[in-house]
Design a protein around this nucleic acid. Sequence first.
DNA 1: AACAAAACTGGACCGTGGTCCGGTTAGGAT
DNA 2: ATCCTAACCGGACCACGGTCCAGTTTTGTT
Lengths: 228, 228
Amino acid sequence: MLYAGFMSAAPPPIPTPQEPVDHPELLQLGTALEADEPCLRADAARNRARLLEAAARLVAERGAEAVTMEAVAAAARVGKGTVFRRFGDRTGLLTALLDHSEKKFQAAFLGGPPPLGPGAPPVERLRAFGCALLRRSSDELELQLAAEPSANRRFVNPARRVLRHHVEMLLRQAVPGADCELLAHTLMGQLDPALVHHLTRQCGIPLSRLEVAWIDLVDRVTGARPAC
Amino acid sequence: MLYAGFMSAAPPPIPTPQEPVDHPELLQLGTALEADEPCLRADAARNRARLLEAAARLVAERGAEAVTMEAVAAAARVGKGTVFRRFGDRTGLLTALLDHSEKKFQAAFLGGPPPLGPGAPPVERLRAFGCALLRRSSDELELQLAAEPSANRRFVNPARRVLRHHVEMLLRQAVPGADCELLAHTLMGQLDPALVHHLTRQCGIPLSRLEVAWIDLVDRVTGARPAC
DNA sequence: AACAAAACTGGACCGTGGTCCGGTTAGGAT
DNA sequence: ATCCTAACCGGACCACGGTCCAGTTTTGTT
């Protein structure tokens, strides 16, 4: 399996749901693409399948919003606790639903034909990667968003919009020819509090490195690099 | 007021909490910096102050996690409904708490001295802006995160990490000298499902423009621009 | 001063995510 | 076939965010 789903190896040791998320480095292709489940008791596996099927049906019939843990449990004729035991939380369930297309995509850029897969020059692969991911996201948007609560509000926050507009204005002066609106989004992404938290607190990256990276990014984007 | 807080003009017309978030374009400086509240009934204003004070106390004493709507209401000796009426939701309350430093920061980059404020060349202002914002975020991280539930998990998602690692690898080949780890974060930000949703669904930007912007970004970052 | 409309208050109420634990079942060992 | 243990199941239970509305208070008008 390429990456056998969110909860493939996690839930068995349930007493400690605090697994430190070890690095499951992208294992090179070659392993089966459809070994969906590791070592699950027969009834457990059956229930898992029923739950995923029920969830998919709910999404199809009544939208991702209707995918309530209780509703899924009821639709699958299963206790609520079972859903949580299997998938951890709502996010886990939604992620498992996305897993299939996830794997397909991983296969495409890890081992598929160029320019997405290996064989093309890196810059070209990068271009193709983004476009492919944009299209994929655009399809499964509903699920992707449902798996990340409050993601909808992230860009409507007035305070952040003020900041972004400021960056956009500066960009217009610095690189008049570019799509400054979208470029501003990119730059602001680098300053997102959640990212800062992740990098500094969880990854231990010092703030100074973030600052250097920011300045480097500005220079690259505006073409203001000393050596060019 | 620079930007008088999340709920400055919103809550009075309560029957329609669906305000379409009109563009409160960054009003140029000059207006008072401390006109905290618009036209609020005396008791309402008093309760608002008590709520904010209580919330701040809770944050200080027991962390942002303890800032529960019910707890704040109780600590302020006020009904739960009042909290929601005043601040809309939890996010609104946390945002209001952040408002003060928000305003200070806005004043700094809108009208303060260079290089943050006007007067310096745009690229330099951009550099300063990022560094300043990084420092600010780093301070109020806890609140910033609390205001955005599930932001912590955003970068730990294994599936996304695979994608990011892929981008990072390609970047290492394309721009060996750069901080590819952070650069990969930046690029992935442009492909974030939440952003794609916001831009395409809420702003009506066609996917093709996102693709063009992505390719442009890749070219800028890797220095692969045709005209350089 | 008296009144009416508008605005505010508070707490009961609901749905959902998530936890817990006694009872049950699967599946290997004998 | 029988037994034992670990894994699993289900649903009662809890906390929190958010809604609602009857009753109260403020404010402007006459």
